[in-house]
Amino acid sequence: MSDLLGRLRRRGWRMTAQRRVVAEVLDGDHVHLTADEVLARATARLPEVSRATVYNTLGELVALGEVTEVSTDGRARRYDPNAHRPHHHLVCSGCGTIRDVHPVGDPLADLPASERFGFTVSGAEVVYRGLCPHCAPA
C-alpha cells in the first residue's frame, strides 16, 4: 500500500470527511485513477462529496507533492499516490491500464554525457508500453 494517509496525517493536513474519502480512494499500490474515477469511488463511499471538492483536493495533493499526475498518450490525467517511491510505469497500449514497475539499474546512468547537452539531469521518467493480458491477442 502507498502510505498516503499516513503522510497526510504527519503533515497535519486538515482531514475533513470529504478530503479523507478522496485520500482513501487514492491510497494503494498500482493506483492510477482519473479524477472522474476518484469522484465515482468517493461518492460511492460518501454520496455528499462534490465534484469540486474532489478536483480541488486532487489539485492540493499534487501541489503538496503527495500525489503525482501521470499522463500518457493524450489520455486523461491519472493520479498516482506513490509520489515518494521511485518507480516507472508500464502502460497498456490497448486499455490504458498503468502498473508501477521497479526495474533494476539507473536510467540516469544510461544517458551518456554526450546526450545531456550540458543539462544537469535530476530525474528520468520511463514509460514501458505493451499489451496487458486482457488486451493481448490469444
Score class of each variant (00 low, 15 high):
66 E>G: 00
55 Y>D: 15
20 R>A: 12
23 A>G: 04
118 G>W: 08
51 R>H: 14
104 V>P: 12
115 E>Y: 11
44 A>P: 03
15 M>F: 09
25 V>S: 03
52 A>D: 12
23 A>T: 04
54 V>N: 07
82 N>V: 04
127 V>P: 00
111 L>P: 14
46 L>E: 12
26 L>A: 03
44 A>V: 06
100 D>N: 14
17 A>Q: 13
99 R>C: 02
56 N>I: 00
85 R>V: 15
110 D>T: 14
6 G>L: 11
110 D>V: 12
29 D>C: 04
13 W>P: 03
70 V>F: 09
20 R>P: 01
106 D>M: 09
13 W>T: 09
137 P>W: 01
55 Y>I: 12
7 R>A: 12
26 L>V: 11
98 I>V: 15
35 A>Y: 02
23 A>D: 05
23 A>P: 06
89 H>L: 04
72 T>V: 15
19 R>C: 01
132 C>I: 01
130 G>Q: 09
85 R>S: 09
103 P>H: 04
127 V>I: 11
3 D>P: 09
73 D>A: 12
40 A>Q: 15
136 A>C: 08
2 S>H: 08
1 M>P: 15
79 Y>Q: 05
45 R>N: 03
92 C>S: 13
53 T>S: 09
40 A>N: 11
126 V>Q: 10
14 R>I: 05
92 C>F: 04
51 R>A: 14
14 R>H: 11
110 D>F: 02
100 D>T: 13
55 Y>L: 07
116 R>P: 08
31 V>A: 02
15 M>K: 10
123 G>P: 05
33 L>R: 09
112 P>D: 14
43 T>C: 07
131 L>V: 03
96 G>F: 04
130 G>K: 10
131 L>K: 10
46 L>V: 00
2 S>N: 09
37 E>M: 00
26 L>S: 06
79 Y>A: 09
84 H>V: 08
10 R>P: 06
138 A>P: 15
135 C>M: 03
84 H>L: 07
4 L>Q: 06
75 R>W: 00
8 L>Q: 10
136 A>P: 08
37 E>V: 00
109 A>W: 03
69 E>P: 14
60 E>V: 11
50 S>P: 12
91 V>Q: 04
40 A>H: 12
116 R>S: 10
67 V>T: 07
132 C>T: 02
59 G>H: 02
19 R>Y: 08
109 A>H: 02
88 H>R: 10
29 D>N: 07
84 H>Q: 13
23 A>E: 00
73 D>K: 08
59 G>C: 03
138 A>W: 05
54 V>Y: 00
68 T>R: 10
120 T>F: 11
117 F>Q: 12
138 A>M: 07
35 A>E: 01
14 R>G: 01
130 G>I: 05
79 Y>D: 06
87 H>W: 08
86 P>V: 08
101 V>E: 05
54 V>R: 04
10 R>N: 13
116 R>W: 05
87 H>C: 06
86 P>C: 07
66 E>L: 01
26 L>K: 11
29 D>M: 08
1 M>V: 13
132 C>N: 00
45 R>P: 03
57 T>V: 11
1 M>D: 09
109 A>C: 01
55 Y>K: 08
3 D>K: 14
62 V>H: 04
78 R>I: 00
98 I>M: 14
